[in-house]
Design a protein around this nucleic acid. Structure first.
Length: 349
DNA sequence: AAGGCGGGGTC
DNA sequence: GACCCAGCCTT
């Protein structure tokens, strides 16, 4: 039997029941594909369920604010996906009359939709013969055909896309594409693949050569940058006992764009209480004299894929109102990075 | 062509 | 610690 035939047979026997597989509604497929970019099914599924609950159609999402979308996305990471998700929902409503484009070529024009996602949507929703190439497909093809071209090189991207197109089943592309990805996730997994009872184990080049654990080949790793964050939490209590603090929205480039955080004093190394006392006015002026309290003695190292954020939180009790202050009860309504959400939880606002 | 962009799970 | 995850975008 052909490669694609075995993939299809395996899929029909082993596919998981996943919420987005219950329909081929392009809005739901698009939503699931954006959520699942660089994200495991187990992590993305609860987000998908909350999104379809809150935004049943593309119109619901388009009518929401970016802030609402970011809040629902909070904790999932790669927040440009959420910003593009919202922007695209508005484009689909306003420029496509609420109907998603139904071809690979048109889908590719949408924000946040690249080659993989356009292929996935067009094949799953419309049976258009476009080969998906995600991390699973790279792994399955590189092993089965014994290809050691780095998957993240320009040559590799072209080679594997071409190979994927060559071996796909255009007569059932919807199930074939989902099948090869599911096969990569369940059977041909990164660690400890189930080669012993694999339907392809008699013709898998990597297995025959004993190099399954060395494929696929990937170039280098990202270098990690250390940064030193001092979050300053101003606190003002009024005569009625109501408490206030301050949040600011991250703008411009870099991490966590459009998410909210406490006033941030970034430094070149870890600061002690004296340093902060001398410098807090750089980012938090107009709050008068303060009582400065070190919240965590040992810096929290929040790890992103490319940055390590050595973070200390400082409490600044002040006797006068804080510019742009917000009440404690409002804090939880803002979309914030996990680092901030964890602090909010620990501080018990 | 290379680097930036999150957070969590696994080994 | 290192690797990986239904990748995309900018420079």
């Amino acid at each position: 039997m052909s490669f694609s035939g075995k993939i299809l047979d395996w899929y029909h026997q082993n596919k998981r029941s996943l919420p987005w597989r219950k329909s081929i509604n392009p809005y739901k497929i698009w939503l699931s594909e954006i959520i699942l970019q660089q994200t495991r099914v187990t992590q993305g599924t609860p987000y998908y369920l909350r999104f379809v609950e809150k935004f049943p159609t593309v119109h619901h999402m388009a009518n929401a604010s970016e802030e609402e979308v970011l809040k629902l996305w909070q904790g999932l990471g790669y927040y440009s996906r959420a910003r593009n998700l919202h922007a695209t929902s508005k484009i689909v409503v306003n420029q496509y009359n609420g109907n998603f484009p139904n071809t690979y070529k048109e889908l590719l024009k949408l924000k946040g939709v690249g080659d993989y996602t356009a292929s996935a949507i067009s094949s799953i929703c419309y049976n258009e013969p476009q080969a998906v190439v995600d991390g699973n497909v790279y792994r399955v093809l590189s092993r089965y055909y014994g290809v050691d071209i780095p998957i993240n090189s320009t040559e590799g991207v072209k080679y594997f896309k071409s190979l994927a197109e060559k071996v796909m089943d255009i007569n059932d592309i919807r199930d074939y594409n989902q099948g090869i990805m599911e096969f990569g996730a369940i059977q041909c997994s990164p660690k400890k693949p189930l080669c012993l009872h694999c339907p392809l184990n008699e013709s898998c080049v990597a297995l025959q050569k004993g190099i399954v654990d060395r494929l696929p080949v990937k170039l280098k790793k990202t270098k990690v940058r250390n940064r030193y964050f001092n979050y300053l939490i101003p606190i003002y209590k009024d005569a009625n006992g109501n408490q206030f603090t301050n949040l600011q929205q991250r703008k411009g480039k870099g991490i966590w764009q459009n998410l909210w955080e406490f006033p941030l004093l970034e430094s070149n190394s870890i600061l002690d209480i004296e340093d902060v006392d001398n410098r807090y006015k750089e980012v938090l002026d107009g709050i008068g004299e303060v009582e400065l309290i070190e919240f965590n003695e040992v810096a929290i190292i929040h790890k992103l894929s490319h940055q390590h954020l050595h973070t200390k939180f400082w409490i600044l009790n002040t006797g006068i109102q804080i510019p742009n202050q917000i009440s404690f009860e409002k804090i939880k309504e803002f979309p914030v990075p996990v680092l901030i959400a964890d602090f909010i939880k620990a501080f018990k606002f």
